[in-house]
Each structure stands twice: as structure tokens, then as C-alpha cells.
Write a protein that binds this DNA or RNA. Structure first.
Lengths: 238, 238
DNA sequence: CTTCAATGTGTACGCTGTACACCTTTCTGT
DNA sequence: ACAGAAAGGTGTACAGCGTACACATTGAAG
């Protein structure tokens, strides 16, 4: 009588339901813990049931990427390309921060899902529609590269470090020793790690504002692009 | 009597031999095909033998990264930071092109092996030793990000496409149809893909000079850094 | 020659993705 | 309303993975 929900509580599966569940499972547990079996269990279904909605795990991952990419805001409707690009990239960044696994998956994929193409297309359109030449835009896209997706390689990523319980004293002593070793072998790394201006206290106290760093690098890039565009730059090879 | 080579042909294992074999196996087959079992077989040894030289697969991957990173040229000894950085990054790029799997592995790793730290340290040193403030250098390192390793996200990576044998005619017809579909749905992507100036003929004929694109983006970045340094830029937050 | 540590072996376990045959539910045409 | 087809879900099974653990072999030092 109903149309989608079986009488006995359990809703029917669908590709969308599978993808949605996969995304939130990856959000919770990380991409490494996402297996077909785990996902099936989450959906109250036997593993093979998933294969009626998704050809294989690769297609699942592609679908997940698509779901995430569609969360990125569309380009704003205003004349200044720079602000449009800037806002969109920052939107992408906030989306990819919500789904941290997406960075890795995006990079692994051989990128050609509809959502990814649509995002790229409209991204490119921002430049073309505002007077950039196809030539310059092409090079700009390469220069922007993965920053288009709102991420940079985290230079000094912490190793997750969950469940750090027992033997805290040994840890601090050992950490100090390691720090001294560090300062002998890699003095420059240490100086730079310290050079995050706020939080001057805590030794290695990860006082690095990622958002600031991201915007710094982004603006550096946008400055460069602006200059080239203003100069009417064109590639002089061939 | 000898010391390393057993009488019966087979050389003894060692961590170095394991890592070397792993690197060239990954070069040949790609990282996806590198398993402990396959590697052991390549070395004429039972899988568990590897664990006497490497704690687990993660440590193997770390070691492989270290091997690769050590192939990058040391910084040249000259006063102009820009040329030193440029040359070194291009050296890193040529190394990572020889070991394509390394990009992915580097990004996955929680980066802290000695070789990686040593590379970063000396990279940072290029700036510090040539008059950059620690503050600016810190931000610059974030801006450089993964370009330090000589790679950018390949925007339009081909899907490998080995073994494309049977039904070539269907393929071309189908490809044409897909192309038309593309041009309706993603017109901007197509325009940009075409805009690689040499090779104006072949439809989608991947006429994109990756090396040019890389250097373009790199120089854009270096220009920006140069300007900031000349201005005596300093982060104004905190 | 004995002894001991380092190195290589064999077996086994739990995990993965997924092929294939089967049953069950739901939709469609008459 | 009913037959039949299509779509969705199940159960079993297999090859491959990383690796724990107990055992055998080797090479060097006493």
C-alpha cells in the first residue's frame, strides 16, 4: 500500500540512501573503516544487497565524492571574479573540512564523475564569463590545482593520537628527549613550527591557524592571477 | 666464510634490500599491486620473512618514501634563493615522476620519517639562510605546500587505459557521442581542454604540456613570495 | 663443539571485495 | 484479479590481504 517503506519498519534501499549512509559513516569513522560489510550492517542489510545499487566499491566512492561536491556553494552572481572565486573556494574548504576523508578520495579517483565535472565547469566559467581568455584560464586552472577543492597538504599533520591514556609521565619525558633530538637534527623545522605568532607559549603547541594559512596562500595565488590578467598575459610558446 | 652472500646463490635480506625491491616493484606495477606477498615472492622469500626487517606495511611505505626523498638533489650553493628553490623543486618533480606512486603515499603518510624531515629542514633553510624572517618563511611553507614535492593534482588525469583492444569502432563512435554530450553539459571544461596552444588538431588530444603548466604555477608562486619578501611583509594578526 | 641470537618458514586467523545461485517482494500487462 | 517479469535482498563461497605465533635453520662467538 505504501510505496517506499515496507510495513515492517525497514525502508527500501536506494542508491541515494546507500551513498548518504556511506558519507556519514566515513564522516564518523574515517575512510579507512568504511567497508562494504560495515556499511551494509549500518543499513541493516546483508553486504551483497549493496551491489544492487552500486556496481562496486569504486563506484561507491565516486558517488560519495559526488554527494560531497554538490554541497559546495554555487558561484555568487557578481561581477568581480576574484571575490567569486575566493568565496567559492572557501566554501569548498568548509565542505571538505566536514568530510575530511574526501580529500584523499578525490585525489585517488580518476576524477570524472558528473558532479566533479559540473563543479569544474562552473568554476572555469567564472573566469571565462568575466573576460579571461581561454588560454589564460587554462593555465590558471592548473595553477589553482587542488586548491580549487579547498585543501592544501597539511604540512605538519598530527598523527590522530586517539586513546592516549597510560604512562603519561613517560610520554612527557620521552617527548622532551625527542624534542631535543629534533632541535639538533632539524633546527629549521623547529624554528618555523615555533613561528606561528599567536600562542607563543606551548612548545610545539600547534599554534598554527590553518584558516589563516589557507587564505594567505589563496590570496597569494589570486594576486598573481590578477596581475597576469591585467597585463594581458598570454602563453608565448608553440 | 663470505659475509653477506650465502653459498647457494640467494643473498641475505636486509632492510635496504627490502626497501629497494619494494620501490622498484611499485615503479613497475603501481602501488596498488604492491603487497607483502608479492614483494616476498619477488625476493624469493616467504612473506613473513619481510617482517624481520620491517615492522609492518606502514613502516615499509615510510621507508619507501624515505628512499625516494633522498633522491632529490640537495640545494645548490648560491646566493639567489629563488633559483635554489626553483631548481630543487624541479628536481623533486623529476624524482616523483620516476616514482609516480610516491605522490599518493606521501599524501597518505602522517609525514614524519627522518628523510622527509631532513628534506623539509633543508628546504626551510634555503629561505632562512638567505634573509627571510621565520614568520614569512612559515607562511611561505604553507603556501608552497605540496608543490614542495614537485607535484600538482593532475586535473584531467587519463584513466590509464591499458589493454584497450576489442571493438575499436564502437569505441570511436561512442567517444564521439560522449564528446557531444560533454560539450552540451560541460562546455567550459571543453573549451579549456582545447586551449592548450600546441597541438590544435586532435580533439581532446591531451595537448597539454605538464612541465610547462608546472613551471607556470611555480613561477606564479615564486613571484608572489618575492614580492612579499621585498615589501618586508609580516603577518599582522595576533 | 656448543650455544645463542638473528634470520627464514609454515600454518592459521580475521578481514577485505565480490561472483553466483537462490528466494522474496513489488510492479506491470491482461 | 491474476500471471509473469523485473527488481531487490540473502547465503554461501573464494581469493586475496596483513600479520600473529610457533618452529626450523643459519652464522658467529665462546
Amino acid at each position: 500500500m505504501g510505496e517506499a517503506v515496507a510495513v515492517s519498519g525497514r525502508a527500501r534501499l536506494s542508491k541515494d540512501r546507500v551513498l548518504e549512509a556511506a558519507v556519514s559513516l566515513a564522516d564518523e569513522l574515517g575512510i579507512g573503516e568504511l567497508s562494504m560489510r560495515r556499511l551494509a550492517q549500518e543499513l541493516g542489510v546483508v553486504p551483497m544487497a549493496l551491489y544492487k545499487h552500486v556496481a562496486n566499491k569504486d563506484e561507491l566512492l565516486d558517488g560519495m565524492v559526488d554527494v560531497v561536491v554538490k554541497e559546495i556553494d554555487p558561484p555568487a552572481d557578481e561581477p568581480a571574479w576574484r571575490e567569486v572565486v575566493r568565496r567559492r573556494i572557501l566554501s569548498a574548504r568548509s565542505v571538505l573540512l566536514r568530510h575530511q576523508w574526501a580529500r584523499q578520495v578525490l585525489e585517488t579517483r580518476t576524477n570524472k564523475t558528473p558532479g566533479v565535472l559540473a563543479y569544474m565547469d562552473s568554476f572555469i566559467g567564472i573566469f571565462l564569463d568575466r573576460g579571461f581568455s581561454a588560454d589564460l584560464t587554462h593555465h590558471v586552472m592548473h595553477a589553482v590545482g587542488s586548491r580549487m577543492w579547498g585543501f592544501t597538504q597539511e604540512l605538519f599533520a598530527e598523527p590522530a593520537d586517539r586513546a592516549g591514556e597510560g604512562a603519561a609521565e613517560v610520554d612527557t619525558a620521552l617527548q622532551l628527549a625527542m624534542l631535543q633530538e629534533m632541535s639538533r637534527r632539524y633546527p629549521n623545522v623547529l624554528r618555523i613550527a615555533m613561528a606561528s605568532s599567536h600562542d607563543e607559549g606551548g612548545v610545539v603547541g600547534q599554534g598554527c591557524d590553518d584558516q589563516f594559512e589557507f587564505e594567505f596562500a589563496l590570496d597569494l595565488l589570486l594576486d598573481g592571477i590578477e596581475r597576469l590578467h591585467a597585463e594581458g598575459w598570454t602563453s608565448a610558446r608553440g
